[in-house]
């Protein structure tokens, strides 16, 4: 847990910034069963992902357990200067959260 759970790459090209982020998360749907005990594994997944730069939200996403384990997200927005900081943060259904910041290249 002590390890940073988000990796971000952000690149600006001709005024459009492309952001790619990888997060570490089990993304349990709550439908899977533990094969040994036969009990259902409780759901544990990222619900909300938000990305901000310069005090503006550029994208927010709501997810269900249908997103793959260790989720990947890539998106684009117009604007964003080289050297600006971009933050990606997530909140999961158990109230856990993390965020990471990277510079736009």
């Amino acid at each position: 847990m002590a390890k940073k759970s988000i990796k971000i790459r952000a690149k600006n090209k001709k005024g459009v910034t492309t952001v790619k982020a990888l997060m570490n998360h089990p993304m349990e749907t709550g439908l899977r069963k533990n094969k040994k005990t036969g009990k259902k594994i409780p759901p544990h997944f990222i619900q909300e992902v938000t990305s901000t730069t310069g005090g503006k939200t550029v994208l927010s996403a709501n997810w269900s357990g249908g997103v793959s384990k260790n989720p990947y997200i890539a998106f684009k927005f117009s604007g964003g200067n080289k050297g600006d900081e971009i933050t990606v943060s997530w909140t999961d259904n158990k109230g856990g959260s993390d965020s990471a910041t990277a510079k736009i290249k």
Binding site: V16, S51, K56, T57, V58, L59, S60, A61, N62, F75, K76, F77, S78, G79, G80
Partner: peptide, 8 residues
């Protein structure tokens, strides 16, 4: 996914 400022 909800587009924010300048979202593409």
């Amino acid at each position: 996914f909800i587009m924010g400022d300048g979202g593409i």
